[in-house]
């Protein structure tokens, strides 16, 4: 690929994206998705603290793992089975800021559920984003089932399930991965290891150092990635998706990352971790890392940064204003969709 030709690069900076098949425009798209996700997420917390919305659960700090993995799937074809921190996965799959704000405000127009489902439990039928669960890990078997259906129907659709490291303590995780291994299902398991199950650190959740180590029990590869390095995650995911599409079965990808915000709007993180620890991880954040890489490749400058920030802010403002003005569902509709109609 010649996309970077003619652009100034920092001396000695290795081009890591071209070998992965990514163009500078891809990097810019990924960067924008992360900045947009972060801006949306920050706005959601403000709206919660203003008393305008009841609940926020978010994945600030995990945007790199999310965009790096979701970007390797084909939107509109593959299935995205996220968990409740995957704002950037939802955006990468094609959901818009308005979609997400309408869900946050529980508006009638919310495309996920018309205000029924919890915010952060991303769902969008047209974009193949599968609505998830508050109790963790239950979506992992769903992704295996979707992959199994793809195989039965003879399609080359790949399903990916996202979850935190805490989900790997659940029976659902073990049963789903075991079954997927047996089926050689076209599924990728993406673990965003953000180090905490609410307050419980990873060392008190599992007796092995890596979630990826658990893959050896299921007969498919477990890969450890630097979850704050978008390109590292993307590379592993690309390979896993290709492997799944070829019919060679699942992969478990662990993204080592960190949640830089409390578990939810109801959490007090000062009870279990220090500000110093959180600040240190903020400096090592995925947005900062991709920005530094893009700068080294001559793809990023201050002007571009301003443009990205302004674009994200105006998208967030538009979504907020739109959703705030939108109407709540009418109480007479309460029984709608209790039973499905095909």
């Amino acid at each position: 690929m010649a996309a970077t030709q003619g652009q100034p690069t920092v001396a000695g900076a290795v081009d890591r994206h071209t070998p992965l098949g990514l163009t500078p425009d891809d990097l810019k798209r990924m960067y924008y998705l992360m900045v947009l996700a972060r801006s949306l997420d920050e706005r959601m917390w403000i709206l919660n603290r203003q008393g305008k919305v009841a609940f926020v659960i978010s994945g600030q700090g995990q945007e790199g793992a999310q965009v790096g993995s979701a970007y390797a799937l084909e939107p509109g074809k593959d299935f995205f089975v996220p968990y409740y921190r995957d704002l950037t996965v939802a955006l990468t799959a094609g959901m818009t800021a308005r979609d997400l704000m309408l869900a946050l405000f529980a508006r009638a127009e919310d495309p996920a559920s018309g205000g029924r489902q919890m915010p952060g439990h991303y769902g969008h039928r047209a974009h193949n984003v599968v609505s998830g669960s508050s109790p963790i890990a239950t979506q992992i078997p769903h992704a295996v089932g979707i992959a199994m259906a793809s195989k039965i129907k003879g399609e080359d659709v790949v399903a990916a399930a996202w979850f935190g490291e805490a989900a790997s303590s659940k029976g659902d995780f073990h049963e789903a991965l075991n079954f997927a291994g047996l089926l050689k299902a076209p599924v990728v398991f993406v673990c965003e290891n953000n180090r905490y199950a609410i307050s419980v650190p990873e060392t008190k959740q599992m007796p092995v150092p890596n979630v990826a180590d658990k893959a050896c029990a299921y007969g498919f590869p477990g890969v450890i990635t630097d979850g704050n390095d978008v390109l590292d995650v993307y590379g592993a995911m690309k390979e896993a998706v290709e492997r799944a599409r070829r019919g060679d079965g699942p992969t478990l990808i662990e993204c080592k990352t960190y949640r830089i915000v409390p578990h939810s709007s109801d959490d007090d993180e000062s009870r279990y971790r220090s500000k110093v620890e959180v600040e240190e991880w903020k400096r090592k954040g995925p947005i900062e890392r991709l920005r530094a890489y893009m700068e080294s490749q001559g793809i990023w400058d201050e002007g571009y940064e301003r443009e990205v920030r302004e674009r994200a802010l105006s998208e967030v403002n538009d979504a907020t204003e739109y959703a705030e003005r939108a109407v709540s569902p009418d109480a007479v509709t309460i029984l709608d969709n209790l039973f499905g109609r095909v």
Binding site: R116, S328, A331, I334
Partner: peptide, 9 residues
């Protein structure tokens, strides 16, 4: 019904 999230519902 499953408990809806919306305050109104």
């Amino acid at each position: 019904v499953p408990m809806p999230y919306s305050k109104v519902l």
